[in-house]
Structures are given as C-alpha cells and as structure tokens.
C-alpha cells in the first residue's frame, strides 16, 4: 500500500454529479488545488465523485468561501483517510 493511504485529506461531497462539475469548474478557474476522486467508503458506500483537498486551513477556507459564494450545496469532511 502506498503512503498516500495514510495521509488524511479534506473532502467535499455534493448532492449531485452536476454540482460536482460546477464546483470543479469553479475551483479550477480560481486555481484552488484539488483532486477529483471517488467518494471514500468511510463517508458513503454510494457511488459518487468527491473533491479532495489537502487538509490545509487556507485551502479549505478558500474552497468553502468560493462554494458558498456561488451557493453550491456541499458537505465538508475533515481528516478522512484516502
């Protein structure tokens, strides 16, 4: 297993894939570093796509501010294993 498995990340989960696509576009256009990944099993066993960011406060704040500003619904999970 790679070391990456032991790193804790911050995840944003959205109500639909359409919101994920909007969020991704938004984060990308504002150069907020993020990764598109499947929703971790620890959060939900449903098939879904999530936005993963480094557990860095500045990045998380930047992301939440941007999503809030554009009124995208999301749930934020901290310290989840990849």
């Amino acid at each position: 297993m790679s070391n990456q498995n032991k790193i804790l990340f911050s995840y944003f989960i959205f109500p639909s894939i359409h919101t994920v696509l909007k969020a991704e576009k938004l984060l990308k256009s504002h150069a907020v570093s993020h990764t598109i990944v499947p929703v971790p099993k620890a959060i939900s066993s449903n098939c879904g796509v999530a936005v993963r960011v480094q557990p860095d406060e500045a990045i998380v704040l930047q992301a939440t501010a941007l999503l809030d500003k554009h009124q995208l619904k999301y749930k934020h999970y901290q310290n989840i294993k990849a």
């Binding site: 297993m1 696509l21 991704e24 990764t35 990944v37 499947p38 990849a82």
Partner: peptide, 19 residues
Amino acid sequence: EALGTILMTAFINTLPEIT
C-alpha cells in the same frame, strides 16, 4: 463529455491507491 471526463479523472486519481 463532462461526465466521461470526471469519471476518467476519478479513475486515474484512485489508481495509486489500489493494491
């Protein structure tokens, strides 16, 4: 296209974690 792109991105981003 948008769906296919995001699925592929999620697929590849998960590859480093598989056994």
